[in-house]
């Protein structure tokens, strides 16, 4: 069997498993699975910027938050459903990403300084949103929880199973989209920029334009995740939504799974979420309560992966399975 064939078979098995899962699992497993898919999606989005184009963002919570607040605000005040709100979310994230990208790339801010800029934007948005009373301010914005036993896809109100399938569709869509992106001309240019930006520029690649495209696509995708976040959790606090720890959570999956790979963000999200949740469960069962244990655990995971699998888990597994993932 060729590598491509094997990859297709494995993907098909995974797809079937993910579709069957909610019918055989309990509500706890379903919630963990939904969370995994959420991080698989955001990881995929972040990976477009960092993994493909080599631009480190440590402020992706900004786009989650903007997307979440945009859709939730429209729904809360005007009863406009998320399928309309998602377009506002995308538009806001595109504008925010374009502003950050323009400031950075136009004035030659790169590397660590670029990362700092992304943090700064997320941070002052967090503080700013504390004072926007129209969106609940620091006290939070709450969407009414209702109709938990039926599916209202139009308004994204329904059972956990519905949310699971929505998130599954989003994650699958992101995977397909990123596969296509990586093989497109843009994907080609991004890899050149990631590997050696000076050389890319010397070859006549308009690095400014392609870096901007990466940021804007990544921001828009993350904004979509934000819309889901708002309607899944039904409450938004600037302190949580925009917090830097949320940005870190987003980037851990793709780093541990494999930067720049297509399957790495998915695998990384699964490994991290499952392990972190088990640890929390075990600790709870043992009656030990230590705040921040999840963060310590994330740190340990990162350490282990950096030491033993500096390219992430997925490339190592892919090699074992005789697969290619570019």
């Amino acid at each position: 069997m060729s590598a491509q064939r094997r990859a297709q078979v494995l993907l098909a098995i995974l797809a079937v498993a993910l579709i069957v899962l909610p019918f055989v699992s309990g509500s706890y497993v379903l919630s963990v699975a939904t969370l995994i898919l959420f991080f698989a999606f955001t990881g995929q989005a972040w990976n477009v910027m960092m993994g493909f184009a080599g631009q480190l963002s440590l402020g992706h919570s900004l786009y989650v938050g903007l997307g979440a607040y945009a859709a939730a605000g429209l729904f809360f005040h005007y009863g406009i459903g998320p399928w309309a709100g998602v377009w506002l979310a995308i538009a806001l994230c595109v504008v925010a990403g374009a502003v950050i990208g323009f400031l950075a790339f136009r004035f030659g801010i790169s590397g660590v300084y670029f990362a700092l800029l992304t943090i700064a934007f997320a941070e002052f948005t967090r503080i700013g949103f504390d004072h926007i009373t129209w969106l609940g301010g620091a006290a939070g914005l709450f969407i009414k929880v209702e109709q938990r036993d039926t599916w209202d896809l139009l308004n994204l109100r329904g059972t956990p199973k519905m949310f699971y399938f929505v998130m599954l569709a989003l994650a699958a869509g992101a995977f397909a989209f990123c596969t296509w992106l990586l093989r497109s001309r843009a994907g080609y240019y991004w890899q050149a920029i990631r590997e050696d930006e000076d050389a890319a520029q010397a070859l006549g690649i308009n690095t400014f334009r392609w870096k901007m495209l990466a940021v804007v696509i990544s921001a828009a995708m993350t904004g979509v995740a934000g819309v889901f976040y708002a309607f899944y959790y039904n409450n938004l606090f600037p302190e949580q939504t925009y917090h830097i720890s949320r940005s870190i959570e987003i980037i851990l999956g793709p780093i541990i799974g494999g930067l720049g790979t297509l399957f790495g963000p998915i695998l990384g999200a699964a490994v991290l979420t499952i392990l972190a949740d088990s640890i929390t469960e075990i600790m709870a069962a043992a009656g030990i309560e230590v705040p921040g244990v999840k963060q310590v655990f994330y740190g340990l995971c990162l350490l282990v992966v950096i030491m033993f699998l500096p390219n992430g888990i997925w490339p190592a597994i892919a090699r074992r399975l005789g697969l290619k993932d570019k």
Partner: peptide, 9 residues
């Protein structure tokens, strides 16, 4: 460019 600068991977 100086130093060759191929795209290694």
């Amino acid at each position: 460019p100086e130093g060759r600068q191929v795209f290694p991977s």
